[in-house]
Amino acid sequence: MAIRSTAAVAILGVAAQAQAVSFETGGYQTDIYGYARLNASYDIDSNQALSTRSGSYSGLVNNDDAADGHFGADAFQSRIGVKTVSPEGVKINVEGDFRGGGGGSLRLRHAYGEYNGVLMGQTWSNFTSFVGNTSTLDFDSLPGVAGYQSRTTQARYTTGPLSLSLEDPQSSFVTAPANAAQKDSLPALTARLQDSAGGLSYSAALLAHQVGYDTGSEDESAMGFATFVAAKIALSDMITVQGSLSYTDGANSYLYRSGENFGAASAYVDPASGDVETISGYGGTVGAGFNLGGGRSINVGYGIVEVDWDDAEDDGVAVAGQSESNSAVMANYQWTPVKNVMMGVEYAFLKRENVSGDDGDASRILFAAQYNF
């Protein structure tokens, strides 16, 4: 049941590859898949909608006097993909959606090949898991879910439940010296274990990368690390409980929705010494899913991330406007009236607090309708 619930999340919000148009030519098995999707949102308080009508943390501070009551709709989450398997067992997958350029432009999501456990190209980061995710209608989901939750260029090897990868690194500084260029000298190294036993599905991962800068005369760097654990358990045929815990130090790009909207800065440069100092953070989610039968379900979830800016503040770095805490609570109702069709409505409450103590919150409602093929 836990595995089926995880697959349902993937179908509705992530991959949508279970339903596909399949055909065979010359020994190549090819699937064309995707979906058309409408997202519509009503922001009860300040306007927090991004493309796909997802809720944003950007600007969610001191918003008491902001204009309220904002409606919008788009179909930018709609996607299409092609997957083919050669007679020799080589798998190739190319997929895109229309969230690029702020919405409406084709965006590359997946483009990779895989053979005998060796994958190269762009796809979900190996430092990602959907096992502990609660099914949300909001495309960007809850803060604190496990790992990067996005796609990146990589070389990966998978054997059984273990996956190892070298990936394009993701990091940023909150401040850097004048005339300095951020430098990534090494790829990010990840290791992930993901498996299931009975009604339990679980995942755990580690990541290490380098955060550095170079002014031409000064070359400084530090190592950043991240880890997460995630699990889903079926309490019965009707109820699942799931969640995740994450910790980062010098790798906040991998702490989901910890910054202005997504990853926070991973490090800062000490103004006195010029040394690279890492910034730590942590987060987590918890949720439950209730299968009501007849294609109906209810999902509730909570997520939070916290970033520790104390050392940067003590060293005189200007971080007052940085997000210290982002959180969200949500509840949705989803209905599948016929095969390949999903409709749902979701309520979410977003909250943000900055280092300065300034804070803000907002309530919003999201409607979605998705037609898979």
Rank of each mutant, 00 (worst) to 15 (best):
E353D: 12
V329A: 13
A205Y: 08
I239Y: 10
S323T: 14
T278G: 05
G96M: 07
S54M: 08
G101T: 07
D31G: 03
S236K: 04
Q194F: 04
G103W: 04
Y115R: 13
G301W: 01
A49D: 01
H110P: 00
D237T: 08
Y202N: 06
D219L: 10
V131L: 10
R156E: 10
V329N: 01
S172L: 04
S135R: 11
V9D: 02
G216K: 09
F228Q: 00
S280L: 08
G117R: 12
V276W: 03
D275S: 11
Q242R: 13
D314V: 00
T336E: 12
A368V: 08
A176M: 10
L255D: 09
A66I: 00
N179Y: 13
N326M: 09
I3M: 07
L235A: 11
D361E: 14
I365E: 02
I304P: 00
D237S: 14
D308G: 07
R107T: 08
Y247V: 07
S221K: 12
G81N: 05
F373K: 00
E114D: 14
D275F: 02
V338R: 06
L366K: 03
V345R: 07
G113N: 05
E167H: 09
V118R: 10
E218Y: 03
D138H: 00
A155K: 05
A176Y: 03
D275V: 00
D43N: 14
G360W: 01
A328H: 00
G160H: 13
A155P: 03
L350K: 06
D270L: 05
N39S: 07
N133R: 14
K91M: 13
S163P: 04
V286N: 00
V300F: 13
R53H: 06
Q122Y: 10
T153D: 11
A67N: 12
V85S: 01
I233G: 01
W309E: 03
K351G: 13
S135M: 13
L207G: 02
G13M: 11
M330P: 01
N332P: 05
D31F: 03
A208N: 11
V241D: 06
G284S: 03
E24D: 15
A180N: 09
F23L: 11
V85D: 02
F76W: 05
V61S: 05
R53T: 11
T30Q: 05
E88D: 14
N179R: 12
F23K: 06
S58L: 12
M342F: 12
S217G: 11
I3P: 00
N116S: 15
D195Y: 12
M120F: 15
Q19I: 08
G198T: 10
A10W: 01
F373N: 01
D168H: 14
S236N: 04
V145A: 08
V174N: 02
S78T: 05
L166Q: 06
T159K: 06
W335M: 04
S221W: 03
L292T: 11
S266C: 12
A188I: 07
